[in-house]
Amino acid sequence: IADQLRNVLITGCSSGIGLALAVKMAKDEQKRFKVFATMRNLAKKEPLEEAAGHRLGKTLEIKQLDVCDEQSIKTCVNSIPDRRIDVLVSNAGMGLIGPIECQSIEEMKTVMDTNFFGLVRLLKEILPDMKRRKSGHIVIISSVMGIQGILFNDVYAASKFAVEGFCESLAIQALKFKLQLSLIEPGPVVTEFERKVFEDGMKMDLSAADKETAEMFTNIYLKNYKQIFQSLGQSAEDVAEHTVKIILAENPPFRHQTNTLYTPMTTLKYADPNGDLPIDIFYKMVFQHDKIFSASLNFIKLLRWRSRKSFDLGKPSQ
């Protein structure tokens, strides 16, 4: 049995997508996975333990891993039998919204250190083993913001762009070693992660920004934030379901957007080589068409309601 089980290491499992994915894979009916669910702070493991239920200690083990600490990564990987990781899911991340005038360089560095260098550290430790075995699947929870930047998400988008460029380059080498590399790109996801980002945005000190920028952030961005999440937002479980399908796919795609409602936004980027089209459309959506913006969100809600089960990769879902 041990030979058939695929060892899966997932980072950032204390909540959100990481937690949902760890539990979903641990509860796989065909028992195909042994999940090593990791988190930076083990004091936050209760929700995961609860959700895992009787799979805890069987198909799911909880381990400490901080993607910003090389030693912590090494210790965790060394504790896995033969250091064998068949599937690595790089999910740990942090968000940051607001005007850059109000953010310290230190905060920005922390976002880059977690979202980008966190992935790099994991791969430096895990990639050589995968290459040697000529087998392995690296799954990165990226974001549509790794393709298309969004207002007041400058640094977060930059960190995800870094991840995407890094993976695009690495994918060519991975192919030579028969390794799979997949970027999962959710749009807005309703999780603890997003709630915290929003709350931090709400209590941000905007005194360093000019009046117009501060008002733009408060009255346009934060005001529409909730509305966008209610219309476009996916659940963490939904993203987890997509991710499992990608992991089980015979030939997993390099990029997979989990939210079909968001795809037209990212397609704009490829539609115009000058790059002006998406910027222009986002500008108009944000600043000129308040009524149209609300109407399109309502229309999207309707579409979403009608196409709940439109996503499919291979076998139809029950």
Rank of each mutant, 00 (worst) to 15 (best):
A92R: 03
A52E: 03
F293N: 13
V67D: 11
S182V: 05
R133T: 02
L48G: 05
S79D: 04
V87N: 04
L151Y: 14
I281V: 15
F116K: 00
A171M: 02
K27L: 13
Q4P: 11
Q180V: 01
H256W: 11
N298S: 13
S231C: 04
A22M: 06
R132L: 10
D28A: 11
S79T: 05
E49S: 07
T59F: 13
K223W: 00
N259V: 07
V163Y: 02
I228V: 09
D69H: 09
I141E: 11
S231T: 08
H242D: 05
L268E: 07
G187Y: 01
F254D: 02
E164R: 06
G314L: 10
E250P: 12
N259D: 13
S317Q: 14
K309M: 10
L313Q: 09
F161T: 11
S169W: 03
K44D: 09
L232Y: 12
Q288N: 11
S169N: 08
I228S: 09
E241A: 15
E241W: 09
F287Y: 15
Y225I: 12
L277V: 06
I80N: 03
A158D: 11
K74D: 13
I1Y: 03
E125I: 10
F116Y: 15
E215D: 15
F36G: 03
E125G: 05
S307Q: 14
D280S: 12
L248S: 10
L181Y: 02
I100D: 06
I172D: 06
N41R: 04
I228D: 07
L297A: 12
E107H: 08
F299H: 13
Q288P: 00
G314S: 11
F282Q: 14
T258N: 04
M204N: 06
F116T: 05
P273N: 08
S235F: 02
A2C: 07
K176C: 10
G98W: 04
M39A: 02
Q103C: 09
W305R: 14
L183N: 04
L181R: 02
D200F: 00
E107R: 08
P188K: 08
G18T: 01
R84A: 01
E212D: 13
Q230M: 05
H54L: 08
T110W: 03
V144D: 05
F287L: 10
S142D: 10
R255Q: 01
L302M: 13
E106W: 01
L206E: 07
I138P: 00
